[in-house]
Amino acid sequence: MTANAAIVDEALTAIERTPRMRALRDTWLIFRRSVVLTIRQPVWILFGIMYPVLYLVLFGPLLDKAVGQAGGGVSAYNWFVPGLLIQVALFGSAFVGFGLIAELRYGVVERMRVTPMSRFAMLLGRSLRDVFLLVLQAVLMIALAIPFGLHLNLAGVVVTLGLMALIGLVMAPLSYSAALALKSEDAFAPLVQGIVMPLLLLSGILLPMALAPDWLRFLSSINPLTHAVDAARALFNGDWGNPEIALGVGLTTALAIGAVWIASRAFSRANA
């Protein structure tokens, strides 16, 4: 064996001795690359910032009075903003598969799969980028909503951001798995739309489910996102005794673990 090969093998044994360290390091590398490449795209800045502003300015005032009666709580914005935040988490993660399909087409994914890097890091690095960006968007939105009359419960806000991160860790890995399986935007787009729209409409984000007929309210109650929304609203009101908080956070955590597990299998499958 040559000197060159010996060095490579030495590096390899060091890596194989500590696969966890390797996964952690690779996750960081992929996270950083993905954040930089996303933020470099002017499209992201536009949508990432315009979207919260538009909702607050053009939709918020409409709800101000209507929701006051049905929603309850400290202010209409304390009902409206937590729901919007959950929507930000959903939209910020459900569609990320589009980016992976582009990377598949560029050959970037195949190139990385030939390196000895951790397969789990390919998934986690990208998912954490999505979580990071959606939390960034959320902070911006919260700051913008304060002048409109949002009352801040700081501890509640922090836990809500954590809940949003968990939603990101449910939807982003699932979105990536679907992208790996379908490999084309034409197949991916209708699938994601078909899942996201019902989830959104049944979650009570846009209007209080208290206004809904019984059958709709039942459907809403089996939507995990509804419980995340209810949890976020309780958190924003500092209503710590509300059982929806534990239910929403617990349910989302369980789903995140399941989603990451499924997606890590998809990424480590040999023939993807």
């Binding site: 093998d9 390899l12 990377e103 560029y106 970037v108 190139r111 030939v114 000895p116």
Partner: peptide, 21 residues
Amino acid sequence: PQLVRQRIGYVPQGGSTDPAE
């Protein structure tokens, strides 16, 4: 396979770079 990966380089047919990087 991990040892193979460490010792080879592979240049795919359709390119391998991200246009934004």
